[in-house]
Simulated assay, not measured.
Amino acid sequence: MQPMLAAVADGIPRGPEWVHEVKWDGMRVLADVRDGRLVLSSRTGRDVSVSFPELAGLTDTYDDLLLDGEVVALDGGLPSFAALAERMHVSSPRKAAQLATTRPVTFMAFDLLRLFGSDLTTQPWSARRELLERLELHSSAWQVPPTYDDGEELFEATRDQGLEGVVSKRRTSLYAAGRRSADWRKSPHRATLSVVIGGWRPEVGTTNRLGAVLVGTPDGSGGWEYAGRVGAGLVGTAGARISSLLEPLSRSASPFSNPVPREDASGATWVEPTVVVEVQSLGRGSTGKLRQPAYLGVRTDLTPSDLHEVSDA
């Protein structure tokens, strides 16, 4: 099963038919407990169970359940995607166990899709939420975060606290697995963006050490619009990881549908736009390029098709 997705809101929905939750800066995960085994699946269906061993105790809660939620890593008391990036890509059980101690995650369970073999996706959100709260899933590694009736108040509070934003849900909404629905609407604060890498430039004074990546966003026609050069955050292991991902993706020409400025294109190696990364910036300048972008991490939970889908929604 793939998770239900939220549409981008043009304002916080009002009225008693809506309920509101904190939008977490993390990784969307389905947690499937069945026959004494836990399987954690990303948005793309990838099994990420090995990456988060501290969630294995969910098998001791109930014999059969399927939870929808988000894995978050805290940095200074706030969820941080950059902090979570250390955990998302780990495939070694030993390393994952070490990171579970030094950089623990928390699973924020916000929906219940199956319980004791009964499919709950055809039940309204309000019924699923009532059952979820009755399960009393509270521990140091997972919790059921609260909901709020006043979305505008929550929006202001999350902005003041430095949280990512708000997700508003229609109380009567059924669970539309794998679909983006206007029954769920997201209102983010932070200027973070998922982009594809279409090329890279070497570090100054070198020929093969990655110094910056050239990124793009959907152009509305199925292609990619050049959005700028990202170098901040790519030192050390982050740059090495990106290099290894891009090495087999080289191509002869730019994948972007618009011209790349000469100062950015000079010395660039072009790549197939298949690697999705998260960046933070000060928005876009007058030329459409991201202002002071910084690399946060690889989005293994997203594909380029997901970015086009969000753009077209």
Rank of each mutant, 00 (worst) to 15 (best):
R103M: 08
P104M: 08
V105T: 14
V105W: 10
A109W: 04
A109Y: 08
F110E: 03
F110G: 00
D111T: 04
D111Q: 07
L113T: 12
F116L: 08
F116P: 00
G117M: 13
L120G: 06
T121P: 03
T121M: 05
P124R: 02
P124A: 01
W125Y: 15
W125G: 01
W125P: 00
R129P: 07
E130A: 13
E130G: 02
L132S: 10
E133S: 01
H138E: 14
H138N: 01
H138M: 00
H138R: 14
H138T: 13
A141M: 04
A141D: 14
A141Q: 13
A141K: 06
W142K: 03
V144K: 06
V144C: 14
Y148A: 06
D150P: 03
E153K: 10
L154Y: 02
F155P: 00
G162E: 11
G162V: 11
E164K: 07
G165I: 06
V167G: 02
V167K: 01
S168D: 11
K169V: 12
T172A: 14
T172S: 15
S173D: 02
S173T: 15
Y175R: 05
D183P: 00
W184H: 09
W184G: 08
W184Y: 01
H189S: 04
H189P: 02
A191S: 15
L193F: 03
L193H: 13
L193R: 10
A212F: 08
G216W: 11
P218A: 07
